[in-house]
Simulated scan of single mutants.
Amino acid sequence: MAESLLLPLVRGVAGKAADALVQTVIRMCGLDDDRKKLERHLLAVECKLANAEERGQINAYLRSWMEKLKAVAYEADDVLDDFQYEALRRKAPKSTSRKVLAYVTRRSLLLFRFTMSKKLKGVRSRSWLRR
């Protein structure tokens, strides 16, 4: 049962990585190469999952890999949600005082870029994501 829910999760995360809003903010942060690599990894994983489910080859190794993949998929989903939130936040109208406050607080683009770069690379770097 858990195996059948994993494929839609991975497809959803891959779709979110391809979302125009997410791509805009990621490009603005200079992380587009990392996003493209993550998207390619997710598509490859999606193919492997579909093949495994189609053949019914769910052995102990594959089940363990799928459990780890599920955790990374949720983590990737959270990271991409952060990019979506940032894109929507930037679209909202702001007063001058809010712009200044955003610049000097944790919402500055530089800090956001640094934080999200670490998160995105952390998700993408999981060697077992490639199986």
Results as ranks from 00 to 15, higher is better:
T24M: 11
E75I: 04
R107S: 13
R130G: 12
L49E: 09
V22R: 11
K99T: 09
E53R: 05
Q57V: 12
G56C: 03
M116H: 15
R11N: 09
E3G: 00
L5C: 09
W128C: 02
K91H: 12
F112T: 08
R63E: 10
A2V: 08
K99L: 14
A18I: 04
R126M: 05
K118L: 15
L38M: 09
R27S: 12
C47D: 15
L62F: 13
L7H: 06
L69M: 08
L111M: 07
N59K: 00
L49F: 01
V25D: 08
Y103A: 15
D33N: 13
R89T: 13
L6A: 02
R131D: 14
R63K: 10
E75A: 13
R107H: 14
E75Q: 15
M116I: 00
E53H: 06
V79A: 13
E86W: 08
A60C: 02
M116V: 03
E86A: 07
S125V: 00
A102F: 04
R55F: 05
V22E: 03
K37M: 08
E39K: 11
T96W: 10
R126P: 01
M28E: 15
A92H: 12
M66Q: 09
R106W: 08
L7E: 01
T96K: 14
K68M: 12
I58S: 07
K118T: 10
V13I: 09
E67T: 09
R124K: 08
S117V: 00
L110F: 10
R55P: 06
L6S: 05
L9K: 11
L88S: 00
L88G: 03
M66Y: 01
S95Q: 12
A102P: 01
V123G: 00
P8D: 02
L101H: 10
P8V: 04
E46I: 01
K119T: 02
A14H: 04
L120T: 04
I26T: 13
A20F: 14
L110R: 11
A87L: 01
L7G: 04
L109W: 05
Q57D: 13
F83V: 03
R63F: 11
L69D: 03
R131T: 09
K36W: 02
V104T: 11
A17M: 00
K16I: 02
L110W: 10
A73C: 04
